[in-house]
Every structure is written in structure tokens, then in C-alpha cells.
Simulated scan of single mutants.
Amino acid sequence: MAHTPAAAVTGMVDHVLTRAATWTHWDGRPARIDDRVYTPHKAIRRVADHLVDHLAELEDRLAGAEPLPDHWHASASTTEADLARFTDEDLDEARSRLTRLARIWADRLGALTDEQLDHSPGAGWSFRQLAQHLAGSVYYADAVGDLHRADAEGDPSLTTR
């Protein structure tokens, strides 16, 4: 089944939020993957930053402007805030933030013609390719993982929800 570019982005956000729903049980130990450190807060931050960064690129290119380079340190940087406990309130904020960003992406991509999606203005990936690139942001959430599953593996009395 072929996915639309909008579905690629919204599906990624759905996947991230499904993972994030298990993170309120995080034990505070960062995951170490590919010489990087990942935590629940860092995963949410990276997904949001990725969506914002490429949305700015898309909008600049549609407006005929040169996109501003980003100066984020990406996943190489782990902040003190990234190491904080991930609470139900954090999950609620993540749902609000990422759902709104996914909606903006879906609306914007849905308004573009196939021609605009495949032969996008300016330098860089086509907007269709950009949406597929964003879909890869599941990496950050998958690096943290499904912590209900980890709980269940560590304690047979716990079950996944």
C-alpha cells in the first residue's frame, strides 16, 4: 500500500507517541545507541526539532527563499533537561506538540500537487523525499524503546499494555 507523504509524517508521529506512552516508567538510565545517548525527553526533542527544521526548509523553498541553515547539535548533544524524569504531564505535552506539528505537515503536504511534491523548488530533496526522510525520525523513539516490554522482560509479573 502506497503511503502519501502526509501519512508518512503522521504515521511517524503516531509511532513516536505510541512508544512515548510507555516512557513514564523510565528508570533514568539513558540508552546508548550508535555512540549516542537517548532518553525520553531527548527523543521527543529530536523529533520536534526535526519536524520544525524541515518545515522551515520547505516553507523557505516554497517562498523562493534560501533556507537558513540549522545550528542545532542534533543527537550529538544531550542536555540536562534530556535526563529528567518523563512524567504523564510530559507525555501530554509531547502529544500536543507533536500532533500539532504532524497536522501542520499533513495540511501543507496535502495542499501540494504531485508535481510540487516530486519537483520541489530550490535545492535539496523533493518534498516527497523530505517526508520520507522525516518518517525515519522513528529512530529516536525506537532508540529509547518500548519500556513496557522492557519492564515485562525484567519482571514476568508485568505485562505490556
Rank of each mutant, 00 (worst) to 15 (best):
M1N: 02
A2I: 00
P5I: 05
A7L: 02
V13E: 08
D14G: 14
D14S: 15
H15Q: 13
V16A: 15
A20R: 02
A20Y: 04
A21V: 00
W23V: 01
G28M: 07
R29N: 02
P30H: 04
D35L: 11
D35A: 14
D35P: 04
D35Y: 10
V37Y: 00
P40K: 00
P40M: 01
K42E: 04
K42Y: 04
A43Q: 02
A43P: 03
R45P: 06
V47C: 09
V47T: 15
V47Y: 06
A48W: 01
D53H: 11
D53I: 13
L55V: 04
L58D: 06
L58A: 15
R61W: 11
L62Y: 11
A63S: 13
E66Y: 04
P69V: 07
H71A: 08
H71N: 08
S75I: 03
S77V: 03
T78V: 05
T79E: 06
E80Q: 12
A81N: 02
D82N: 03
L83I: 02
T87W: 04
D88S: 12
D90M: 01
D90H: 01
L91C: 01
A94K: 05
R97Y: 07
T99M: 03
R103K: 14
I104M: 07
D107H: 12
G110D: 06
G110C: 06
A111Y: 03
L112E: 07
L112Q: 09
L117G: 11
H119A: 14
P121A: 11
G122Q: 12
G122S: 13
R128H: 11
Q129W: 12
Q129R: 15
A131P: 09
Q132L: 11
A135G: 15
A135C: 13
Y140P: 10
G145S: 03
A152G: 04
G154F: 02
D155H: 15
